[in-house]
Design a protein around this nucleic acid. Structure first.
Lengths: 358, 358
DNA sequence: GAAAATTTGATGTACGTAAATCAGAAAATT
DNA sequence: AATTTTCTGATTTACGTACATCAAATTTTC
């Protein structure tokens, strides 16, 4: 049997109350006694039963998720996943609130972070914008020992506990590798459509993409980056202009959102060479375009995984327990037409039998 | 606050004992009363607190994992992941035992399944072999209401509760799609190296691969399948012979194990056209070969995810609660040189602070 | 309508931990 | 040495559920 607090008490030759004081960092224990208890814990290999502790405390984990607003499909999907997690709250003892702030607006994000801090939550997850003010706001949270997880876009230089998102440099490199190989012998320049260089994920993708294109496929020149602000209308305009100006464009890498606009521009195009298109994030629009052959490959990050991972990590940090590193690594999905997952899930043989438990 | 058993009792106008009898399917409750209670449960939206229930029962989940023996790197990695899960047993209330049986041997597998059944575990996970005897053995387990999850290779036609593995038809299709595009304009036939057509995952990969090659890339003929029994030595011999017999081979798809042999054969080769190689499962051998450019792409299933998913699903089935479908879908990882994950993990800012909890 | 059988209620203990109270022991201070 | 302060022990209640026991009420059976 797994040792309990009683076993520690016996092993250390102290009372249960003292063990409890040590375990929960309560005052009123002499240094020597504290040490005796800690050694006993170490010796008999005690691990606190988090389930029992949470039961005793009737603990809930109040978490705040801060997401960009706007009609970015990916971000709305992310929000839907957070709402799904809210639906699981009773079982998971979480109390999640969602705060949305205008995209690419550091001031608004700082305000939201400070507001979240005022509610003393058990943890905060945030889609970060790279800016010194935001770093400072995150570090203020950490200063109050509130765990912080960055979501989708990281915040280098901050004291955030964890990043729940993909390796965006690798994503960019992979996109370039696929682009180069898919283009095969064909020649022609490659265009890049981004959202904004303000967010780290977009910058990193571009860095990775440029590096591999220059190293391995120098025959394809990179055109100046189009910044579409993740806005479909703007993206459509920019891509349309680019295609008109350079009909010999052989490839387009869309590393941000606003793919609806990209797809519209591609559909409007009638002349010119075939274009190899690689885009990010699987949405209803990109999925349809992939099936139609307008897009050749989609790199995707699974928003559901990111949200669930963020919650697991925030819980673990709040409880001071270790996380399974490999489980929390968010992978880059590469979708071709051939490995698109079905829209709806569930391939189990039967429904659970409610109430049965043994 | 979330409703408890007391709230059901009050809402249904019965005693706690009666609620308990209904909830735990104990005898001694009249039909009308049972219905009253069940309606109250429905009405107030009661969900049993599994953590508290497990505490009260001091429940452990005895699970049996049945894996093929032999020096197949992927399977040994899978076993390592199960052992890692055993290391987490105290926290997860599991008691996992591992049984290994000779690969591709239905009789041995049936014996192992029946033996497992004799111990009345809370669940069984098994790397299945497609055979009527195995189906029958699995259905015997289900007959005793023991949840069964197939791992890596599925068992169609059986009553298994769930399959923790990838969509192997999609994997084969994806491999073909990559192969066709990577080959670009080049011509030449494509060879396929499999383990055994006895296991469903290999058959499905081949089906998917053949389908897309025939549909989309009819210029590349498919050579007869090489069955290497997942044995490196045999694989090396078969591939060596094939390359010698057809120096014009343009691509090789290795859909099973024994990639050490494939790589050795590729290294030995000095003449002939460049070969595009797509293999399955990221191991130290395939990883090195990908980095060296001997392999062009690796399709991978994450053994750790599969094991953790299997455990989550077995627990859920044993408790009669629902699973998060999307979370349990195992995805096909596509690795190019550019998105290889690091060998070791951990990109968190700091270690957990042991003992702290609030 | 009485006896037997069944159903229901009341109550207590347990699981492992948290948290509070109060009394007593040991230190530190005067 | 007496007093104050600090530490430690003993004990209790609670969290939500499981499970057992025994008494009381209800239904069924003859």
């Amino acid at each position: 049997m797994r040792p309990t607090v009683h076993d520690i008490a016996a092993a250390a030759g102290v009372s249960l109350a003292t063990v409890d004081r040590v375990l929960n960092r309560r005052p009123g224990v002499r240094g020597v006694t504290r040490e005796k208890v800690e050694q006993a814990i170490e010796r008999i290999g005690y691990i606190r039963d988090v389930a029992a502790a949470n039961l005793a405390k009737s603990r809930v984990y109040p978490f705040v998720f801060i997401l960009p607003s706007g009609d970015n499909s990916f971000m709305r999907g992310l929000e839907a996943q957070v709402r799904a997690a809210i639906g699981r709250s009773p079982a998971e003892r979480t109390a999640i609130s969602i705060v949305t702030v205008p995209a690419f607006n550091p001031e608004a994000l700082v305000a939201a972070l400070d507001e979240a801090r005022a509610t003393s939550p058990s943890g905060v997850a945030v889609v970060a914008i790279d800016s010194p003010d935001v770093i400072a706001a995150v570090d203020r949270l950490r200063g109050e020992r509130i765990p912080v997880v960055t979501l989708v876009s990281d915040l280098a230089g901050s004291k955030r506990d964890h990043f729940a998102g993909v390796d965006n440099i690798a994503a960019g490199r992979t996109a370039a590798s696929l682009m180069g190989r898919f283009l095969g012998g064909r020649s022609g320049p490659v265009a890049v459509l981004a959202g904004s260089m303000l967010v780290r994920d977009h910058r990193e993708r571009l860095d990775g993409f440029s590096a591999v294109m220059n190293e391995s496929f120098p025959g394809h020149a990179l055109l100046p980056v189009l910044e579409g602000q993740d806005d479909p209308a703007l993206a459509e305009q920019l891509v349309g202009e680019a295609l008109a100006a350079s009909p010999e464009i052989a490839g387009i890498y869309s590393l941000g959102a606003g793919n609806r606009g990209l797809i519209a521009a591609l559909k409007r195009r009638r002349n010119g060479v075939p274009v190899c298109v690689i885009a990010h994030e699987l949405t209803q629009h990109t999925r349809a375009a992939l099936n139609d052959g307008l897009i050749d490959a989609i790199l995707n990050q699974d928003a559901g995984h990111e949200v669930r991972s963020a919650i697991r990590v925030l819980k673990a940090k709040a409880d001071g327990v270790a996380v399974i590193g490999a489980q929390e690594r968010i992978r880059i999905d590469i979708f071709l037409k051939d490995n698109l997952p079905f829209e709806r899930d569930g391939h189990d043989n039967q429904e659970p039998e409610p109430g049965r438990q043994d």
